[in-house]
Write a protein that binds this DNA or RNA. Structure first.
Length: 366
RNA sequence: GGGUCGGUGGCAGAGUGGACAAUUGCACGUGGCUGUAAACCACGCGGCCUUGCGCCUACGGGGGUUCGAAUCCCUCCCGGCCCA
C-alpha cells in the first residue's frame, strides 16, 4: 500500500481536466475513465474473458442487488466478488443509495421508509423487507470486497423542495460520518457522495462538507434522475470546484457521451452508467455522425440490408466482423448473440471515446 | 352420401342480438431508456376526413328476421372430426 491511491499525471491548463491513475489491489485505472456497470456481478451479456478486449478497466457493482442475490455471506465465502464472478479488474461498489431513489420513491412506497437510522426497503422480487443503514452498507460492501466503496447516501429525486433537499443532504452527511466510522478494511477505499438536489447553495454546502471528511475520493450523486441536461451540468458545476484537487472524483450515473467532456473539464475523473449496455440490449448502438456519438436503433427496417459495420472507425470485434444487417436480424429474432455483440460495441465505443479524451488532455486540447 | 363442429382484422384466438371498428397475444410501426425491478417500457396498428362520443367499409359468399346482426334463420362455398 505504498503507492498512492490516486495520482495526477497531468493537469490541463485550459480547464480543470486532469489525467490520472487509480491504484487498486486489482489493478490500475487510467483516468478519465468510463466505468461499465455490472450491477449483479456481471456486465450483462459479456463474459469476463472479453472485458479486456472491450477496454473495461474498472466496473461498478451494486450492494443492494448483491445482498438480495447471492447474498454477501456467499460472496465472502468465495473470497469476494472478484473471485466469485471472476472479475479480475478493479471494482467499485455502489452502496444501495441509488435504490432509495429507484425503488423507494417509485414502487412499493408502503414498505419503504427513510429514517435517520437507515432505509427500510422492500425486495422488488418477493416483497421481503430489508433494512440498510450506513453501518450495514459498509459491512455488506466489505464482504462484497470491491476496491472502492460508495458511502450510503440518499439519492434525492428530481424536483423536490429546497426544504426536503436540505434535510436529505444533511442526513446523507451524517450517514457519511457513520460510514467512515463503520468501515474497517484498510484495503478498500471509500468515496463520500455529494448531494444537494437541484439547489446551488446545497450543492456547494454538500461539496464543502464531503471535502472536509476523511475520504479517499468523492462522488457527485443525485444527478441523472430526470432533470434536464442543463440542470445536470449545473449541479456538477456547482459541486466540482469545491472538491479537493488531490482526490479522485466520480460522477454517478452519467452518462451520455455528450456530457463527458463537460464534466471532465469541471474536474471529474470517472463515470459509471448503465446506458451503453442497456441500450445495447434493447437494440440501440452508438455510431459516429460528424463529431458526435449518436444512437442507432438496429431494429429499424432500414438496416435490414445494410452491409456496413455499425461504425467503420470502431475497432471492436462486432464492427470488424459483422454487418448492421446481421445485427438487425439477430435483434429481430431475439437471438442472444445480438445482446452480446451490441454490448461489446457500445462499451468499446465508450472506451475509445475516453482514450480520445485522455489524448486531448495530454495534448492540451481539453 | 349422412352426422357434427367450425370459418372473425397479417397470424393465433376471444366475442355469440344493442355498450363492437371488435378483448388478448404475436407480428408490424414509432418513440424512450443516464449510481439497472430493464434481453425492458410506452404509444400506434381497417380507411377517410371538417379528428367528431364523425362518416365509410368490415367478422367466408348471398339472402332473410329485427328498430338494430360478427352474434338468430335459410342457402351456397370451404375446412376438421365421426359414421357409411
Amino acid at each position: 500500500m505504498d503507492k498512492p491511491f490516486f495520482s495526477i499525471i497531468k493537469k490541463s491548463k485550459k480547464s480543470r481536466a486532469r489525467l490520472g491513475v487509480l491504484q487498486t489491489p486489482h489493478g490500475t485505472v487510467q483516468t478519465p475513465s468510463f466505468v461499465p456497470v455490472a450491477t449483479k456481478g456481471t456486465l450483462k451479456a459479456i463474459a469476463p474473458n472479453l472485458l479486456k478486449d472491450i477496454g473495461a478497466q474498472v466496473m461498478f457493482v451494486n450492494t443492494f442487488h448483491l445482498v438480495l442475490s447471492p447474498g454477501v455471506d456467499t460472496l465472502r465465502s468465495f473470497g469476494g466478488i472478484h473471485q466469485y464472478a471472476s472479475l479480475q479488474l478493479p471494482l467499485m461498489s455502489d452502496s444501495a443509495g441509488f435504490q432509495v431513489f429507484s425503488l423507494g420513491s417509485k414502487i412499493n412506497s408502503k414498505g419503504f421508509k427513510i429514517t435517520e437510522k437507515g432505509v427500510h426497503f422492500k425486495s422488488p422480487r418477493d416483497g421481503a423487507s430489508l433494512f440498510i443503514s450506513p453501518e450495514q452498507s459498509m459491512k455488506h460492501q466489505e464482504k462484497i470486497g470491491a476496491d472502492i466503496l460508495m458511502a450510503f447516501d440518499e439519492c434525492i429525486p428530481h424536483g423536490v423542495s429546497h426544504e426536503y433537499a436540505l434535510e436529505a443532504t444533511e442526513r446523507t452527511h451524517r450517514w457519511l460520518l457513520r460510514c467512515i466510522k463503520a468501515k474497517k478494511r484498510k484495503d478498500q477505499r471509500l468515496y463520500g457522495i455529494v448531494q444537494g438536489g437541484g439547489f446551488k447553495d446545497l450543492r456547494e454546502q454538500s461539496a464543502r462538507f464531503i471535502a472536509e471528511q476523511n475520504v479517499d475520493g468523492i462522488a457527485i450523486g443525485g444527478v441523472s434522475v430526470g432533470e434536464t441536461q442543463k440542470e445536470m451540468r449545473d449541479q456538477v458545476r456547482w459541486s466540482a470546484p469545491f472538491l479537493p484537487e488531490k482526490l479522485p472524483r466520480h460522477l454517478l450515473g452519467v452518462g451520455r457521451p455528450k456530457d463527458f467532456r463537460y464534466a471532465i473539464s469541471q474536474g471529474m475523473d470517472t463515470f459509471d452508467c448503465v446506458e451503453p449496455t442497456r441500450l445495447a440490449r434493447t437494440g440501440t448502438v452508438f455510431t459516429i455522425k460528424g463529431k458526435n456519438i449518436v444512437r442507432m436503433n438496429l431494429m429499424r427496417p432500414l438496416y435490414k440490408k445494410d452491409k456496413k459495420p455499425i461504425e467503420k472507425t470502431c475497432s471492436c470485434y462486432t464492427c470488424k466482423t459483422f454487418s448492421r444487417s446481421y445485427l438487425h436480424h439477430l435483434f429481430r429474432e431475439q437471438e442472444m448473440l445480438g445482446h452480446q455483440l451490441a454490448s461489446i460495441h457500445n462499451i468499446t465505443m465508450m472506451h475509445l471515446e475516453f482514450e480520445k479524451i485522455r489524448q486531448e488532455i495530454q495534448r492540451g486540447i481539453l
